[in-house]
Design a protein around this nucleic acid. Structure first.
Lengths: 234, 234
DNA sequence: ACAAAAGTGTTGAGAGTACACCCATGC
DNA sequence: GCATGGGTGTACTCTCAACACTTTTGT
């Protein structure tokens, strides 16, 4: 019921958990699924890597707080982002009770502003498949985020949100293979991804490197992102 | 990163959102999907119906807080419960900033303690298909919970968590039909539910009412609850 | 014997999977 | 002309969906 309490109830400061948002920022770098981490400056876990995040301001929504953190770290706005899970075990932060609402974001790597030490915090991209030691319960959060991302890719077509505005089907397939960790059949991949009807040809071709130039595709703005999953019952 | 801030940072009380858990308690009553609501005693929304919930204690996990609220309202423990979503728009509580972590629970109606006004709060079961006016954003939370429950039933077999320990396949099918809002084919339903291999016969039969006695089934403790969903990519 | 609910199989359609060769370009 | 990656079709299998009658009990 969200707090049905008499007006005179006055919880002391110590009774109330702090609330933060953390944002798992995924990107593809050199055919590798990477995540942006920041080096902590203060105790606890000083000098350890952690998922970027911070306190929720009193007048902003959780989504806005997550988007703000994302922009502070990457300069990027308007990317795919969804709420992942809320982690709140006592003891996850040794100082005090902190509950964090975790989000995950998919950002095209070419859109990221690579900060020139502008606000001093040290950040770095790390492969999801060889993570450093992490502060708090952040390792578990990242693993859960990867599970959710993989699951999502299996029944939707959000993978292209990690690519630039226009991309080839081979690039998209490589993205799926990188994240899912398995080879996919080229013909079946193309048939299914096109059957989902969320991409359209740009009419242009990618002409670089070797080999035959590839058609460039883009997201159809009018499309619904979710491919309807097969149901257990008719 | 969950609050990387210097030690001397001291947010005033007003800077910090309050945190609650709300629990959407589903049950089947007379072949109807119902939800337990409580009547608020205090402003705002005094005398309106609301989803049961309350503050998270400083030393309990979010799951524990949700389970505590559930038990306070129903006397029930050990039921299916999962985190639904965290709602935190500023303005959802007109007094102050309140962020709520919503859970939903599936409880067999026969297990519910029907409170004899024991701790004074008025509670009531309401059909999900004819809800009263609700406090805060609770209508939206219930609608989202129903969507998630339906979605979940489509690719898992958790429906039996709304039934008593033993049940017939016809009862289970009626539960699915009630929640999904559509008729299901008896033969296909049975084939699929049994193919999921999470139920087993008890060897007993339900002998009451009219007609041929039905086999009673129960949950296989060793089964994995999640039926693997069909993947978009092989 | 009849009313009531439980239980049971088959067939056609559509989707999923596996699989190999030709095409367009740059050098 | 050859190396490189892009692009295409088909046959088999399996799952899904639709559909109707027999069985067991109580009265």
């Amino acid at each position: 019921m969200t707090s049905d309490i008499p007006h005179n109830y006055d919880p002391s400061d110590y009774d109330r958990p702090s609330l933060t948002v953390d944002v798992v920022i995924f990107s593809l770098v050199d055919d590798d699924l990477q995540v942006l981490l920041v080096k902590r400056k203060f105790a606890p876990f000083a000098d350890m890597w952690a998922i970027p995040g911070g306190f929720v301001h009193i007048d902003e929504s959780l989504e806005d707080a997550a988007a703000r953190e994302l922009e502070e770290e990457t300069g990027v706005t308007n990317v795919y982002m969804e709420q992942l899970y809320t982690f709140g075990n006592p003891g996850r932060d040794p100082r005090t009770r902190v509950v964090t609402v975790a989000y995950f974001a998919l950002v095209p790597h070419n859109a990221v502003r690579h900060r020139a030490g502008d606000d001093a915090a040290e950040t770095g991209w790390f492969s999801m498949f060889s993570l450093p030691h992490l502060a708090f319960d952040h390792r578990g959060i990242l693993e859960y985020a990867l599970t959710r991302l993989r699951y999502k890719l299996e029944y939707t077509a959000v993978g292209f949100r990690l690519l630039p505005d226009v991309f080839t089907l081979s690039e998209l397939q490589r993205a799926y293979e990188t994240i899912l960790g398995e080879k996919l059949d080229k013909r079946n991949f193309r048939r299914k991804i096109l059957a989902a009807a969320i991409l359209e040809e740009t009419g242009k071709k990618k002409r670089d490197g070797e080999g035959r130039p590839a058609k460039l595709y883009k997201y159809r703005e009018d499309a619904v992102a979710e491919v309807k999953t097969r149901r257990l019952f008719p």
